[in-house]
Structure formats: structure tokens, C-alpha cells
Amino acid sequence: MGGNNILETKEIVKRFGGIVALNNVNIGIEKGRITGLIGPNGAGKTTLLNVISGFLKPDHGKVIFKGKDITGLLPHKICELGLARTFQIVKPFLNFTVEESLLIGTLKKRSGREAQELINNVLEYFELDELRSKLCRELNVTQLKELELARAMATEPELLLLDEPGAGLNPKETSRFMRMIRDINRKKKITILIVEHVMPIIMGLCETVYVLHYGEIIARGTPRCISKNEQVINAYLGEKW
């Protein structure tokens, strides 16, 4: 892996009791690109995101972000360093308005007018303007997913980890989401790691894809390359994508 990686994991091992959820996982994420992470259910994708973002401590191995060892740091510290994430199952602040949800992301770095400006920009960018004073509990899942992405953006990250942003969206919403993600990457120059089941999303967005299977990386390459890889096809045999 080159020196152009914003994030690297080194020999990550994570066990839950008897289950080895991650076994010696090494990945590198190139700065400025969109990298994909795929794998069947229970492969350990979410666990890997949790380890990278500090929600879980690995049993072994290191996470290097911008050349710095961030293994074992708490999530909020990692966020401060410029790494934001979304959750597979949305985690909204139900009694907050959309605007206040975004405010939480800005608390650490900005205050007063600066924060408000940032929030306004994000609201505009995600076309959430009309919803700004709506309570999160009144939003539908698609809107909550967008808000979650917007919230992460409000922390001004350099690297964004997305856990299945396409799950549960219809094709129209999916293409809108893809556009947004590509936009974030190109215009805002934010590196993205995206975990996804929906293959077209991966095919359309990523330059590099990692395949995780039973906690091990079994392949790495371009999406086209990966979809022809025999081992990958075997791993997914019986899977429905």
C-alpha cells in the first residue's frame, strides 16, 4: 500500500466470545477516493467500521489515520481528528429538530455565527431547508438517512465511513444518494469508505473494492475485477444480489 493512504488497518483481529468477527484484516484507503467494502451478512463489515471509528477496541492490530495510530481512541476523539461515520440502523436524536441535530456535529469545532453558517450550508447542500425545524421523530427513514449523512458532514470530516447507506431505498432514492455521495467526494474532496450490499452502488461509485468474508479480506480490486473473481462468487453463492 502506498503512502497516499489516509487510513490503514494493520492485522486487525476482533473476537466476540467464540466468534472471530475480524481476522487479520489489512485494508488501505486511498486519499480522495471512494473505496467499497462488500461481503455477505455477518461478514464483519459493521464490526470493522466500529473498530476504525473507535466504538470497538480490536483484540489485536492497529488503525492508522493520517499517519497517526488511533487504535483505542474514543469515538469522539477520532471524530475530532476528521473521521465521521453513519450507522447501518439510523440513530436519530428523536426530539431534536433537523437543525439542532446538525448543530451537535458542529459543537466541537465551531460556535456562534460560524456554526450557523456551516449548518445553513449543509442544510442547503442536502436540500433539507424546508425540514430544518421539523422534529426528527416526524421524518421518514429516507429523510433520516439523509440527515445522518448531513450530520456527519457537519463535523467537517476528511474521511467518511458509510454503513449501507442504500439499504431500504427505492431505485430513485438510490440514484439520488449516489449522486450526493459522488458529489461529496468530488466537490468537497472527502475520502469515502462505503459498506454496501447493493451492487450497482458499489459498481457506480468505487474505484477499489475490498471483499470481506467470515472476517477475512478475500479479495481486493476494481469492481469489475471483483465481480469476476471466482472466490468472491463462491463466497456469495446462494446470496441474492
Partner: peptide
């Protein structure tokens, strides 16, 4: 606001840079 966010959803608050402890 940090407290409210923490009370509303601890994981989300933590992921947005709030030192929940």
C-alpha cells in the same frame, strides 16, 4: 445540547464528537 444529544442517542452523540464520559 451535548447532554441532550447524549440522552437522546449516546452512540450518535459520540460519533459526532461529543465526549460522552
Amino acid at each position: 445540547y451535548s447532554m441532550l444529544a447524549l440522552g437522546s442517542n449516546e452512540d450518535a452523540a459520540e460519533s459526532l464528537g461529543i465526549d460522552t464520559r
